[in-house]
Design a binder for these strands. Sequence first.
DNA 1: CGCATAATTAACTCAGCGGTTAATTAACCT
DNA 2: AGGTTAATTAACCGCTGAGTTAATTATGCG
Lengths: 132, 132
Amino acid sequence: MQDQLSLTFAALADPTRRAILAQLSKGQANVSDLAKPFLKDMSLPAITKHLKVLEKAGLITKTREAQWRPCRLNGEAFKDVADWIEQYRIFWEQSFDRLEAYLETVTQRTSPKGKEHGREDSVQRDPHHPDL
Amino acid sequence: MQDQLSLTFAALADPTRRAILAQLSKGQANVSDLAKPFLKDMSLPAITKHLKVLEKAGLITKTREAQWRPCRLNGEAFKDVADWIEQYRIFWEQSFDRLEAYLETVTQRTSPKGKEHGREDSVQRDPHHPDL
DNA sequence: CGCATAATTAACTCAGCGGTTAATTAACCT
DNA sequence: AGGTTAATTAACCGCTGAGTTAATTATGCG
């Protein structure tokens, strides 16, 4: 899995971890604080592991204070994700426009419309984006 | 893995799949077109599987045209990711810009939120009350 | 010291992912 | 019909991720 961005996306691909991040967005918290909402569903070591994943992904920072490990969000990893997704903005904005256009042409139709075997020259529009 | 957002993040957590998306951002393409850059590193069935992951994640749409399967990006899943990450914008802007820009756009929403385990005099900088 | 609290580590299970090769489906073309 | 191209499916393999329980480390306190 190597690269940092993959690690970050992988870390985000879990509802428990996203919930932990949501909790941390309200302020710093210790491991047991973070674990509390989940202890009916899973053990403390499970949370420790989740935190380790989040830490390696750069999404959180864990410090030491006596026997506690206060955790806080680390903005930079979020920025990496935001920067990556940003280059696709045109696509989600575009599809919203298309949805509206579509809804206007179809408001009274009932059949979802099977597709034609036409030349399908309707290329997707090419904003010619810088890649990666 | 259940929920859609987790599926989407998981799909993005792979460099090959992100490269496929980058390629699709330049326009619609068939499976073998998409596979071409990777065929030195992996087989065609591997690409088929990657495309299936992307499709289930909602990131692409695969249609049929004779024996070809033209693929295109599907903006909505990107929007879901963008919307999710947006709620953490304050954290990555805080890291760089000291939040000043943000404060101009948001001037309410306070939550003092005393933390338990009083040990901390070093409560995390509350993003809503930054000490700048 | 002795004990409680906070958290991690160890050792293990199990499912699913990413990849393979080989076989199969599906459409087109003479 | 037979052959070619496009793509998927099947069956398999090794690794890792998410979880468990039990043991261990580290700190604070009476």
